[in-house]
Design a binder for these strands. Structure first.
Lengths: 184, 184
DNA sequence: GCTTCCATGTAATAGGTTACATGATTTG
DNA sequence: CAAATCATGTAACCTATTACATGGAAGC
Protein backbone atom coordinates (compact mmCIF):
# COMPACT_ATOMS: atom_id res chain seq x y z
CA UNK A 1 0.00 0.00 0.00
CA UNK A 2 1.86 3.01 -1.30
CA UNK A 3 1.32 6.74 -1.13
CA UNK A 4 -0.77 6.63 -4.31
CA UNK A 5 -3.37 4.48 -2.60
CA UNK A 6 -3.29 6.65 0.48
CA UNK A 7 -3.97 9.69 -1.67
CA UNK A 8 -6.95 7.96 -3.24
CA UNK A 9 -8.24 7.40 0.26
CA UNK A 10 -7.64 10.99 1.26
CA UNK A 11 -9.62 12.19 -1.76
CA UNK A 12 -12.43 9.76 -1.03
CA UNK A 13 -13.07 11.92 2.02
CA UNK A 14 -13.46 15.00 -0.19
CA UNK A 15 -11.68 17.01 -2.85
CA UNK A 16 -8.37 18.42 -1.73
CA UNK A 17 -5.04 19.89 -2.74
CA UNK A 18 -1.69 18.23 -2.15
CA UNK A 19 -1.11 20.65 0.65
CA UNK A 20 -4.35 19.71 2.34
CA UNK A 21 -3.64 16.02 1.96
CA UNK A 22 -0.31 16.51 3.69
CA UNK A 23 -2.21 18.15 6.55
CA UNK A 24 -4.37 15.05 6.89
CA UNK A 25 -1.21 13.07 7.59
CA UNK A 26 0.21 15.71 9.90
CA UNK A 27 -2.74 16.66 12.02
CA UNK A 28 -5.86 15.29 10.40
CA UNK A 29 -7.70 12.00 10.00
CA UNK A 30 -4.55 9.97 9.28
CA UNK A 31 -2.10 11.55 11.68
CA UNK A 32 -1.90 8.82 14.28
CA UNK A 33 -1.32 5.86 11.99
CA UNK A 34 0.13 7.05 8.67
CA UNK A 35 2.88 9.28 7.38
CA UNK A 36 3.75 10.80 4.02
CA UNK A 37 5.85 13.73 2.88
CA UNK A 38 5.32 16.33 0.13
CA UNK A 39 8.07 14.61 -1.78
CA UNK A 40 5.91 11.54 -2.14
CA UNK A 41 2.44 13.12 -2.25
CA UNK A 42 2.92 15.56 -5.13
CA UNK A 43 4.41 13.02 -7.54
CA UNK A 44 1.68 10.55 -6.55
CA UNK A 45 -1.05 13.05 -7.45
CA UNK A 46 0.58 13.71 -10.82
CA UNK A 47 0.78 9.98 -11.61
CA UNK A 48 -2.79 9.34 -10.50
CA UNK A 49 -4.04 12.14 -12.72
CA UNK A 50 -2.12 10.71 -15.67
CA UNK A 51 -3.76 7.35 -14.98
CA UNK A 52 -7.15 9.13 -14.91
CA UNK A 53 -7.92 8.09 -11.37
CA UNK A 54 -8.09 11.77 -10.48
CA UNK A 55 -9.12 14.98 -12.15
CA UNK A 56 -7.46 18.26 -11.38
CA UNK A 57 -8.96 21.74 -11.31
CA UNK A 58 -6.56 24.65 -11.18
CA UNK A 59 -7.57 27.66 -9.16
CA UNK A 60 -5.47 30.67 -10.07
CA UNK A 61 -4.05 32.56 -7.12
CA UNK A 62 -2.10 35.77 -6.78
CA UNK A 63 1.26 35.61 -5.10
CA UNK A 64 0.99 31.88 -4.48
CA UNK A 65 1.37 28.93 -6.83
CA UNK A 66 -1.95 28.04 -8.41
CA UNK A 67 -4.03 25.81 -6.19
CA UNK A 68 -4.64 22.40 -7.71
CA UNK A 69 -7.76 20.74 -6.43
CA UNK A 70 -7.92 17.02 -7.03
CA UNK A 71 -11.08 14.92 -7.29
CA UNK A 72 -11.56 11.19 -7.41
CA UNK A 73 -12.94 9.91 -10.72
CA UNK A 74 -15.26 6.86 -10.78
CA UNK A 75 -12.24 4.93 -12.02
CA UNK A 76 -10.30 6.20 -9.05
CA UNK A 77 -13.02 5.15 -6.66
CA UNK A 78 -12.92 1.64 -8.13
CA UNK A 79 -9.16 1.52 -7.81
CA UNK A 80 -9.46 2.44 -4.15
CA UNK A 81 -12.15 -0.18 -3.63
CA UNK A 82 -9.91 -2.83 -5.14
CA UNK A 83 -6.93 -1.80 -3.06
CA UNK A 84 -9.02 -2.02 0.07
CA UNK A 85 -9.82 -5.63 -0.74
CA UNK A 86 -6.13 -6.52 -1.14
CA UNK A 87 -4.36 -8.28 1.72
CA UNK A 88 -3.24 -5.72 4.26
CA UNK A 89 0.21 -5.52 5.79
CA UNK A 90 0.72 -5.99 9.50
CA UNK A 91 0.78 -2.95 11.72
CA UNK A 92 4.22 -1.54 12.13
CA UNK A 93 5.19 0.08 15.37
CA UNK A 94 8.68 1.48 15.72
CA UNK A 95 9.74 3.04 18.98
CA UNK A 96 13.21 4.30 19.65
CA UNK A 97 11.88 5.33 23.03
CA UNK A 98 11.32 1.71 24.06
CA UNK A 99 14.72 0.79 22.71
CA UNK A 100 16.34 3.39 24.92
CA UNK A 101 14.24 2.29 27.89
CA UNK A 102 15.59 -1.22 27.44
CA UNK A 103 18.98 0.25 28.28
CA UNK A 104 17.82 2.80 30.82
CA UNK A 105 20.52 1.58 33.20
CA UNK A 106 23.12 3.09 30.84
CA UNK A 107 21.72 6.57 31.47
CA UNK A 108 21.52 8.84 34.52
CA UNK A 109 18.24 8.49 36.36
CA UNK A 110 17.20 12.09 35.64
CA UNK A 111 17.73 11.56 31.92
CA UNK A 112 15.38 8.59 32.01
CA UNK A 113 12.77 10.59 33.91
CA UNK A 114 13.03 13.40 31.41
CA UNK A 115 12.52 11.03 28.51
CA UNK A 116 9.44 9.53 30.13
CA UNK A 117 8.02 12.98 30.88
CA UNK A 118 8.56 13.98 27.28
CA UNK A 119 6.95 10.84 25.96
CA UNK A 120 3.91 11.38 28.15
CA UNK A 121 3.51 14.92 26.81
CA UNK A 122 3.83 13.67 23.27
CA UNK A 123 1.07 11.14 23.84
CA UNK A 124 -1.06 13.81 25.49
CA UNK A 125 -0.62 16.08 22.47
CA UNK A 126 -1.78 13.27 20.23
CA UNK A 127 -4.75 12.71 22.50
CA UNK A 128 -5.71 16.39 22.39
CA UNK A 129 -5.68 16.23 18.63
CA UNK A 130 -7.79 13.09 18.65
CA UNK A 131 -10.34 14.55 21.04
CA UNK A 132 -10.70 17.71 19.05
CA UNK A 133 -13.21 16.59 16.44
CA UNK A 134 -14.21 20.02 15.26
CA UNK A 135 -14.50 19.04 11.66
CA UNK A 136 -17.42 16.72 11.03
CA UNK A 137 -16.32 13.11 10.78
CA UNK A 138 -16.68 12.20 7.12
CA UNK A 139 -17.20 8.43 7.37
CA UNK A 140 -18.53 6.00 9.98
CA UNK A 141 -15.04 4.53 10.04
CA UNK A 142 -13.59 7.84 11.21
CA UNK A 143 -15.12 7.55 14.63
CA UNK A 144 -13.94 3.98 15.00
CA UNK A 145 -10.41 4.84 13.93
CA UNK A 146 -10.16 7.95 16.05
CA UNK A 147 -11.38 6.17 19.15
CA UNK A 148 -8.94 3.39 18.55
CA UNK A 149 -6.19 5.98 18.71
CA UNK A 150 -7.64 7.40 21.88
CA UNK A 151 -7.80 3.98 23.52
CA UNK A 152 -4.21 3.14 22.64
CA UNK A 153 -2.68 6.48 23.60
CA UNK A 154 -4.62 6.52 26.85
CA UNK A 155 -3.35 3.06 27.67
CA UNK A 156 0.17 4.24 26.85
CA UNK A 157 -0.02 7.27 29.12
CA UNK A 158 -1.55 5.23 31.92
CA UNK A 159 1.12 2.62 31.59
CA UNK A 160 3.97 5.10 31.70
CA UNK A 161 2.54 6.90 34.70
CA UNK A 162 1.88 3.76 36.69
CA UNK A 163 5.03 1.83 35.84
CA UNK A 164 7.79 4.37 35.42
CA UNK A 165 9.06 3.40 38.85
CA UNK A 166 10.18 0.08 37.33
CA UNK A 167 13.10 1.85 35.70
CA UNK A 168 13.34 5.00 37.77
CA UNK A 169 14.00 3.13 41.00
CA UNK A 170 17.43 1.61 40.64
CA UNK A 171 18.95 -1.29 42.63
CA UNK A 172 17.15 -3.66 40.25
CA UNK A 173 20.19 -4.63 38.17
CA UNK A 174 22.83 -7.20 39.04
CA UNK A 175 25.08 -4.79 40.85
CA UNK A 176 23.79 -4.98 44.41
CA UNK A 177 25.49 -7.33 46.85
CA UNK A 178 24.17 -8.19 50.29
CA UNK A 179 22.12 -5.00 50.56
CA UNK A 180 19.11 -7.25 50.94
CA UNK A 181 15.84 -5.82 52.25
CA UNK A 182 16.64 -2.27 53.22
CA UNK A 183 14.27 -0.04 51.27
CA UNK A 184 15.55 3.54 51.20
CA UNK B 1 18.99 5.42 14.91
CA UNK B 2 19.97 2.84 12.32
CA UNK B 3 20.39 -0.91 12.32
CA UNK B 4 23.99 -0.57 13.45
CA UNK B 5 22.90 1.01 16.72
CA UNK B 6 20.17 -1.57 17.15
CA UNK B 7 22.77 -4.31 16.76
CA UNK B 8 24.92 -2.72 19.42
CA UNK B 9 21.89 -2.82 21.67
CA UNK B 10 21.18 -6.44 20.84
CA UNK B 11 24.75 -7.38 21.71
CA UNK B 12 24.59 -5.43 24.95
CA UNK B 13 22.11 -8.09 26.07
CA UNK B 14 24.66 -10.80 25.37
CA UNK B 15 26.91 -12.19 22.65
CA UNK B 16 25.04 -13.37 19.60
CA UNK B 17 25.20 -14.30 15.93
CA UNK B 18 23.50 -12.38 13.17
CA UNK B 19 20.94 -15.11 13.01
CA UNK B 20 20.15 -14.80 16.68
CA UNK B 21 19.91 -11.04 16.46
CA UNK B 22 17.37 -11.40 13.70
CA UNK B 23 15.37 -13.66 16.02
CA UNK B 24 15.32 -10.91 18.63
CA UNK B 25 13.54 -8.71 16.13
CA UNK B 26 11.22 -11.48 15.00
CA UNK B 27 10.16 -13.06 18.24
CA UNK B 28 12.44 -11.82 20.98
CA UNK B 29 13.00 -8.74 23.11
CA UNK B 30 12.55 -6.28 20.22
CA UNK B 31 9.74 -7.92 18.31
CA UNK B 32 6.90 -5.58 19.23
CA UNK B 33 8.59 -2.28 18.51
CA UNK B 34 11.46 -2.78 16.04
CA UNK B 35 12.14 -4.49 12.75
CA UNK B 36 15.24 -5.40 10.79
CA UNK B 37 16.05 -7.87 8.05
CA UNK B 38 19.09 -10.06 7.41
CA UNK B 39 19.94 -7.78 4.53
CA UNK B 40 20.56 -4.96 6.97
CA UNK B 41 21.83 -6.89 9.99
CA UNK B 42 24.69 -8.78 8.36
CA UNK B 43 26.28 -5.76 6.68
CA UNK B 44 25.84 -3.79 9.93
CA UNK B 45 27.77 -6.42 11.90
CA UNK B 46 30.56 -6.38 9.32
CA UNK B 47 30.84 -2.59 9.49
CA UNK B 48 30.75 -2.51 13.28
CA UNK B 49 33.54 -5.07 13.45
CA UNK B 50 35.64 -3.02 11.02
CA UNK B 51 35.08 -0.02 13.29
CA UNK B 52 36.19 -2.15 16.26
CA UNK B 53 32.94 -1.74 18.11
CA UNK B 54 32.55 -5.51 17.96
CA UNK B 55 34.80 -8.54 18.00
CA UNK B 56 33.94 -11.67 16.13
CA UNK B 57 34.70 -15.29 17.06
CA UNK B 58 34.21 -17.88 14.37
CA UNK B 59 32.91 -21.27 15.39
CA UNK B 60 33.52 -23.84 12.69
CA UNK B 61 30.50 -25.98 11.83
CA UNK B 62 29.97 -28.95 9.58
CA UNK B 63 27.39 -28.63 6.86
CA UNK B 64 26.44 -25.12 7.90
CA UNK B 65 28.22 -21.82 7.35
CA UNK B 66 30.60 -21.09 10.21
CA UNK B 67 28.85 -19.48 13.14
CA UNK B 68 30.10 -15.98 13.83
CA UNK B 69 29.59 -14.89 17.38
CA UNK B 70 29.81 -11.16 17.94
CA UNK B 71 30.72 -9.41 21.19
CA UNK B 72 30.56 -5.79 22.18
CA UNK B 73 33.98 -4.20 22.79
CA UNK B 74 34.36 -1.46 25.43
CA UNK B 75 34.47 0.97 22.52
CA UNK B 76 31.21 -0.50 21.28
CA UNK B 77 29.62 -0.14 24.68
CA UNK B 78 30.59 3.53 24.73
CA UNK B 79 29.20 4.05 21.25
CA UNK B 80 25.90 2.56 22.39
CA UNK B 81 25.88 4.76 25.49
CA UNK B 82 26.40 7.82 23.34
CA UNK B 83 23.67 6.86 20.91
CA UNK B 84 21.26 6.37 23.79
CA UNK B 85 21.88 9.96 24.88
CA UNK B 86 21.08 11.30 21.39
CA UNK B 87 17.67 12.81 20.75
CA UNK B 88 15.22 10.03 19.98
CA UNK B 89 12.79 10.01 17.07
CA UNK B 90 9.06 9.98 17.64
CA UNK B 91 7.28 6.66 17.72
CA UNK B 92 6.06 5.60 14.35
CA UNK B 93 2.89 3.64 14.05
CA UNK B 94 1.70 2.59 10.62
CA UNK B 95 -1.53 0.69 10.25
CA UNK B 96 -3.01 -0.27 6.93
CA UNK B 97 -5.74 -1.92 8.95
CA UNK B 98 -6.96 1.41 10.30
CA UNK B 99 -6.74 2.90 6.83
CA UNK B 100 -9.03 0.19 5.51
CA UNK B 101 -11.38 0.60 8.47
CA UNK B 102 -11.73 4.26 7.58
CA UNK B 103 -13.34 3.07 4.36
CA UNK B 104 -15.14 0.06 5.77
CA UNK B 105 -18.32 1.20 4.02
CA UNK B 106 -16.63 0.36 0.69
CA UNK B 107 -16.44 -3.31 1.67
CA UNK B 108 -19.03 -6.02 2.33
CA UNK B 109 -19.87 -6.31 6.00
CA UNK B 110 -18.48 -9.86 6.26
CA UNK B 111 -15.16 -8.72 4.84
CA UNK B 112 -14.91 -6.08 7.55
CA UNK B 113 -15.75 -8.61 10.24
CA UNK B 114 -13.13 -10.97 8.91
CA UNK B 115 -10.48 -8.26 8.97
CA UNK B 116 -11.31 -7.38 12.56
CA UNK B 117 -11.24 -11.03 13.60
CA UNK B 118 -7.85 -11.41 11.97
CA UNK B 119 -6.49 -8.32 13.61
CA UNK B 120 -7.64 -9.51 17.02
CA UNK B 121 -5.86 -12.85 16.51
CA UNK B 122 -2.73 -11.04 15.45
CA UNK B 123 -2.76 -8.94 18.60
CA UNK B 124 -3.43 -12.05 20.67
CA UNK B 125 -0.44 -13.79 19.11
CA UNK B 126 1.73 -10.82 20.03
CA UNK B 127 0.35 -10.96 23.55
CA UNK B 128 1.14 -14.65 23.88
CA UNK B 129 4.68 -13.93 22.86
CA UNK B 130 4.91 -11.09 25.36
CA UNK B 131 3.53 -13.15 28.21
CA UNK B 132 5.89 -16.00 27.54
CA UNK B 133 8.97 -14.80 29.39
CA UNK B 134 10.76 -18.11 29.49
CA UNK B 135 14.16 -16.64 28.91
CA UNK B 136 15.35 -14.60 31.88
CA UNK B 137 14.86 -10.90 31.33
CA UNK B 138 18.34 -9.48 30.85
CA UNK B 139 17.83 -5.87 31.96
CA UNK B 140 15.46 -4.03 34.30
CA UNK B 141 14.22 -2.21 31.21
CA UNK B 142 13.07 -5.47 29.65
CA UNK B 143 10.23 -5.87 32.07
CA UNK B 144 9.13 -2.29 31.58
CA UNK B 145 9.23 -2.57 27.80
CA UNK B 146 7.48 -5.92 27.69
CA UNK B 147 4.69 -4.76 29.93
CA UNK B 148 4.25 -1.67 27.87
CA UNK B 149 3.60 -3.92 24.91
CA UNK B 150 1.16 -5.96 26.92
CA UNK B 151 -0.74 -2.87 28.03
CA UNK B 152 -1.02 -1.50 24.50
CA UNK B 153 -1.99 -4.76 22.81
CA UNK B 154 -4.52 -5.50 25.50
CA UNK B 155 -6.05 -2.08 25.03
CA UNK B 156 -6.15 -2.72 21.29
CA UNK B 157 -7.91 -6.05 21.62
CA UNK B 158 -10.37 -4.64 24.14
CA UNK B 159 -11.11 -1.73 21.89
CA UNK B 160 -11.75 -3.86 18.84
CA UNK B 161 -13.99 -6.25 20.73
CA UNK B 162 -16.05 -3.54 22.37
CA UNK B 163 -16.35 -1.16 19.43
CA UNK B 164 -16.46 -3.28 16.32
CA UNK B 165 -20.20 -2.69 16.16
CA UNK B 166 -19.45 0.92 15.20
CA UNK B 167 -18.54 -0.26 11.71
CA UNK B 168 -20.21 -3.63 11.58
CA UNK B 169 -23.68 -2.20 12.10
CA UNK B 170 -24.49 -0.24 8.99
CA UNK B 171 -27.13 2.49 8.55
CA UNK B 172 -24.67 4.97 10.05
CA UNK B 173 -23.74 6.67 6.77
CA UNK B 174 -25.66 9.43 5.05
CA UNK B 175 -27.94 7.14 3.12
CA UNK B 176 -30.89 6.72 5.46
CA UNK B 177 -33.94 8.97 4.99
CA UNK B 178 -36.91 9.19 7.36
CA UNK B 179 -36.30 5.73 8.79
CA UNK B 180 -35.98 7.39 12.16
CA UNK B 181 -36.10 5.21 15.26
CA UNK B 182 -36.87 1.76 13.92
CA UNK B 183 -34.02 -0.52 15.02
CA UNK B 184 -33.97 -3.71 12.93
C1' DG C 1 8.93 -36.65 1.62
C1' DC C 2 8.19 -31.92 2.71
C1' DT C 3 8.88 -28.18 5.59
C1' DT C 4 11.25 -25.77 8.96
C1' DC C 5 15.47 -24.63 11.23
C1' DC C 6 20.09 -23.38 11.11
C1' DA C 7 23.52 -19.97 9.01
C1' DT C 8 25.76 -16.42 6.14
C1' DG C 9 26.04 -13.23 2.66
C1' DT C 10 25.32 -10.03 -1.82
C1' DA C 11 22.97 -7.37 -5.40
C1' DA C 12 19.19 -5.17 -7.36
C1' DT C 13 15.48 -2.50 -6.51
C1' DA C 14 12.21 0.26 -4.51
C1' DG C 15 10.31 3.43 -1.92
C1' DG C 16 10.66 7.08 0.47
C1' DT C 17 12.63 11.37 2.98
C1' DT C 18 15.46 15.50 3.00
C1' DA C 19 16.86 19.41 1.11
C1' DC C 20 16.39 22.77 -2.24
C1' DA C 21 13.94 26.41 -5.04
C1' DT C 22 10.40 30.37 -4.75
C1' DG C 23 7.67 33.90 -2.57
C1' DA C 24 3.50 36.61 -0.94
C1' DT C 25 0.49 37.06 3.03
C1' DT C 26 -1.02 36.69 7.51
C1' DT C 27 -0.21 36.35 12.39
C1' DG C 28 2.21 37.24 16.65
C1' DC D 1 10.02 42.46 12.36
C1' DA D 2 10.10 37.56 12.47
C1' DA D 3 7.88 33.45 12.02
C1' DA D 4 4.40 30.61 10.42
C1' DT D 5 1.02 29.60 6.70
C1' DC D 6 -0.07 28.81 2.16
C1' DA D 7 1.37 26.36 -2.18
C1' DT D 8 3.84 23.48 -5.62
C1' DG D 9 7.42 20.90 -7.34
C1' DT D 10 12.22 18.39 -8.33
C1' DA D 11 16.54 16.00 -7.48
C1' DA D 12 19.75 13.81 -4.70
C1' DC D 13 20.26 10.62 -1.46
C1' DC D 14 19.71 6.97 1.67
C1' DT D 15 18.24 3.08 3.83
C1' DA D 16 16.44 -1.01 3.94
C1' DT D 17 13.70 -4.73 1.93
C1' DT D 18 13.36 -8.40 -1.45
C1' DA D 19 15.17 -11.87 -3.89
C1' DC D 20 18.82 -14.71 -4.81
C1' DA D 21 22.60 -18.13 -3.79
C1' DT D 22 23.82 -22.42 -0.90
C1' DG D 23 22.86 -26.58 1.69
C1' DG D 24 22.81 -30.05 5.56
C1' DA D 25 19.99 -31.71 9.48
C1' DA D 26 16.07 -32.40 12.06
C1' DG D 27 11.22 -32.70 12.74
C1' DC D 28 6.60 -33.89 11.11
Amino acid sequence: MDVKTLCLGALALGDATGYEIKKMFEEGEFSHFLEASYGSIYPALTRLTEEELLTCTTEVQDGRPDKKIYSLTPKGRDALSNSLADPIADDKFRSEFLFVMLFAHFLPREAVSRLIDMKISKYREELDRLYDDDQALPTPGSKFVRRFGQAVFEASVDYLENNRHLIEDRRTAGRQKETAATPV
